[in-house]
């Protein structure tokens, strides 16, 4: 049996279920998808939500859900960026990881015409959103950005799911040379959207927010912060008055307006110290 939730783990929500990795897909040179059977999470997960992934012996890290099947299969898609993700990337099929969740709010997929803007591994929750939205017959326009062609995440999947797909790469090896946000203004001018969903590096998100403002399209942005408990207690993921783990990770434009001194400006490190949001990319 792949899924080995213990009796005590089924009695409480916030305890990792230790599962064996069922499948691993190398999506790009730096991004892998991991599949586990986790019907308890998969059956209730919405696009935009995340799980806490216990990389046993190393750390526990938040990962957005990139897919959840009716068969109970759960997918997370992970970019190699630090100790825990490095360790996760070294795991093989059959190795164990712990999963607790799902946590946080999710994208509102109402409306008929959706615009999605994703940079780097930020495409992960959007692809899940695109799958759900497209199954409901929604019209999806997507702009995906990456450093280079081979790093464009879920390119073929998004090609299938979108009516219009625009690609950008920083080196020009695929699509338009530049950043995803370079194509946003013209896309917003071309047609009217019911909602704009974005996930990616924070400088990109800030630009999306700024560019979209005059177009009065409802904006939903997925934020990332240092996350430890995921249950709204420890306070490490706060942005202004909000806890990203429980009030987010998806924030509406009006909420981001309220934290304009912080959004796109600084994050907090493991100690809680302010650190500048990294230099612009994607």
């Amino acid at each position: 049996m792949e899924n080995v939730g213990t009796e005590s783990s089924s009695r409480v929500a916030h305890r990792p279920r230790v599962l064996r990795i069922k499948r691993i897909v190398e999506e790009t040179p730096t991004i892998k998808s991991f599949y586990v059977n986790c019907p308890e999470v998969a059956s209730v997960a919405h696009p935009g939500q995340f799980v806490m992934v216990w990389v046993i012996g190393t750390d526990e890290i938040p990962m957005s859900i990139s897919g959840a099947g009716k068969d109970g299969e759960l997918r997370i898609t992970v970019e190699r960026v630090g100790d825990a993700t490095e360790r996760l990337h070294a795991l093989k099929v059959g190795d164990q990881i712990g999963i607790r969740g799902p946590y946080g709010n999710w994208f509102d997929l109402s409306g008929e015409k959706l615009l999605m803007v994703g940079g780097g591994d930020g495409v992960a929750p959007l692809a899940f959103g695109a799958e759900v939205a497209s199954s409901q017959g929604k019209e999806i326009t997507a702009i995906l950005g990456a450093k280079t062609s081979s790093e464009l995440l879920f390119r073929s999947r998004m090609e299938e799911l979108s009516t219009v797909l625009k690609l950008t790469t920083e080196d020009g090896s695929a699509g338009v040379k530049g950043l995803a946000t370079d194509l946003l203004e013209e896309t917003l001018r071309e047609r009217k959207f019911d909602s704009l969903l974005a996930c990616g590096p924070e400088p990109m998100l800030k630009k999306v927010f700024d560019i979209a403002k005059p177009y009065r399209v409802p904006v939903q942005i997925s934020l990332e912060r240092m996350m430890k408990c995921a249950i709204g207690l420890c306070g490490s993921c706060c942005v202004g008055p909000y806890r990203v783990c429980t009030d987010g990770p998806i924030f509406m434009g009006e909420q981001l307006e309220r934290v304009s001194e912080e959004f796109g400006v600084f994050k907090r490190d493991k100690c809680g110290r302010k650190v500048q949001v990294a230099a612009t990319r994607s």
């Binding site: 409480v12 916030h14 216990w54 430890k228 493991k270 100690c271």
Partner: peptide, 15 residues
Amino acid sequence: EPSEGYPGPTVVQTP
């Protein structure tokens, strides 16, 4: 001095 705290999991629920 600043402190990073322990590696996760940092919380686990009991009944």
